[in-house]
Design a protein around this nucleic acid. Structure first.
Lengths: 330, 330
DNA sequence: CTGAAAGCGCTAACAT
DNA sequence: ATGTTAGCGCTTTCAG
């Protein structure tokens, strides 16, 4: 920067003004400085800038999701990265695998690096620790689910109405015994979907049978086993709601193994590649992961721009896509 | 840091020594400093450290892939993030959508931020520009494909033998007219796979028929259309090789639309969720994305640790998974 | 083993 | 509209 100043015949402070686009520089001088920058291949050092500037901004934000390789989280992540890049903000990221310890560790690492803000897909447990760890006023936006014990902006799908819609879809086809496969109910998403499932039963005047709800399913295999068990029981369900993407895939496997795919109806959460090519094709509730990520990024940007209004909840609608498996009558 | 020093009754320089784990501090003093750090909730400022330190290391690296939301790239990305986190290195990322301009822009942005190194899934075009843009000795590792015109470490799948294996698999089932659907041949991966396809034909004494190769297919729909066209032609193929994941999915769609899924054989690149549940299930060549990412991260770490040996090529084996579609006889 | 001084590249606050 | 001075929080260098 000093060299650039010399070359352009101005003080290095003027160079700083040009680089930062401050108005108070004569166009003629600005041109000269720009030329010198070009010739010398000068690139400003963001670390030095961060160090000295009053707000300490680094121009980076962090994204923490359950699994960066999971298609849903990956789509959210990419949407955030794209939105932030447009503003010259770079994005750091980490996966939690739904482990609260890993989540906290990642969060601390990012705060220590002085990120300007974070977008978090919170694990199921208590997030009061966030209030302490979060440095002086670092904005945090939750995505996909709210955090327990920490009031902040959140962007999520309409989980509860969506689950109700899926369930009602099956009830309308005459189903009375509808199973629900879901992950641990401590995960907010799962709880909401269970509530929606119950809403639909209640609205239809059907009794809630806890034996038809299998929660705590952590992966495809567990979901498959649970589904097989239910379908093999004396009084099996005639329809299944897959509470999240891996549960849906597990249910598909179970139905095929028992050769019930044309007999027992299925509506699953999250659209999956090739779901439309199965026989029958799978009826799904599709979430708009890109919209979730974009909205979270936008909200974070508002906070970074100084918006201090109360925490906002942003709901992104889901879509039920009928394809066959959900239209099997009882 | 100054405050911590005061509290512990030592100079702030000693605090710096403790924080950086330099040996020359009496255990007793070190304990006192650590206690003071704890009490004051002190967290070192990485920007200041970067600014002053002689090597200018920032403890960040960047990953640039075609699409962070694509399952293959997402798995690579996650593997890199995990490997780097273990060393306290954070990861920035960007998508190129196979656009060379976006790739260059992202690369520059990361270099301007002083990342310590980069992992790049290069777009198809010339990468000689890298030699200029790359600052003083920033290590770059290519993943999935090498870069044209820039000699550096690369970690990739055994594309050519894998394609040969897929093709041979079909030839053994009596197929003589085997189509190949692939993306633009400027993409190194596509070129290699075409070469492997030809290797297999040659080895079997079969003639190469250019009419059976459809390249430049950018997405599922283009792949599907190309497949339909081929299958509808007067002298149609009896088997298809899907040259990359979207081509595979496009081929599946085409075969179903023409109700040829039980007649025409298919071996596709990249395993896809639910591919095992289709009827017939899809025979695929599975790449080990996690291994690719981990190996690239490891190689970059070696370079960061000062390894100056010649550029290395690391090949990760693929697996052919027979599931039915590839075993249909001619 | 510990400390004092210098200065990394930049921006803030004040001159001029 | 431009320059001067100070200093961000740390590491380096050198002195004790």
């Amino acid at each position: 920067m000093r060299d650039v100043g010399e070359r352009a015949g101005v003080s290095f402070k003027t160079v700083s003004r040009v680089v930062n686009g401050e108005a108070a520089v004569r166009p003629e001088v600005r041109e000269r400085v720009l030329a010198a920058i070009e010739e010398l291949g000068y690139r400003p050092d963001p670390a030095a800038s961060t160090l000295r500037r009053s707000d300490g901004r680094t121009g980076t934000v962090a994204v923490i999701v359950d699994d960066l390789a999971n298609p849903f989280a990956a789509a959210v992540h990419r949407a955030v990265v794209d939105a932030m890049h447009e503003r010259g903000v770079l994005v750091l990221s980490a996966s939690t695998d739904e482990d609260a310890a890993r989540e906290q560790e990642a969060f601390r690492a990012f705060v220590d690096r002085r990120v300007d803000g974070l977008i978090l897909m919170p694990t199921s447990v208590d997030h009061r620790w966030l209030a302490e760890v979060r440095g002086p006023e670092i904005p945090v936006v939750m995505v996909d689910r709210p955090a327990v014990g920490f009031d902040t902006d959140v962007v999520l799908s309409d989980h509860r109405p969506a689950a109700a819609r899926a369930t009602t879809h099956l009830i309308r086809r005459g189903h009375r015994r509808i199973a629900l496969l879901t992950e641990a109910l401590e995960v907010h998403t799962a709880r909401e979907r269970l509530d929606g499932y119950e809403d639909a039963l209640t609205a239809a005047g059907l009794a809630f049978d806890p034996a038809l709800v299998r929660s705590g399913l952590r992966d495809r295999d567990q979901a498959q086993d649970a589904a097989v068990e239910l379908l093999d029981s004396p009084d099996p369900p005639t329809a299944i709601v897959g509470g999240y993407n891996r549960a849906t895939v597990g249910a598909i496997h179970a139905l095929r193994r028992l050769d019930l795919q044309h007999t027992v109806a299925l509506v699953g959460f999250d659209d999956v590649v090739l779901a439309d090519l199965l026989e029958p094709a799978i009826t799904v509730i599709a979430q708009d992961a890109v919209a979730l990520g974009s909205a979270a990024a936008l909200q974070l940007q508002h906070r970074l721009d100084g918006d201090r209004s109360p925490a906002r909840e942003h709901v992104i609608p889901t879509r039920l896509i009928p394809r066959g498996s959900g239209e099997i009558a009882a």
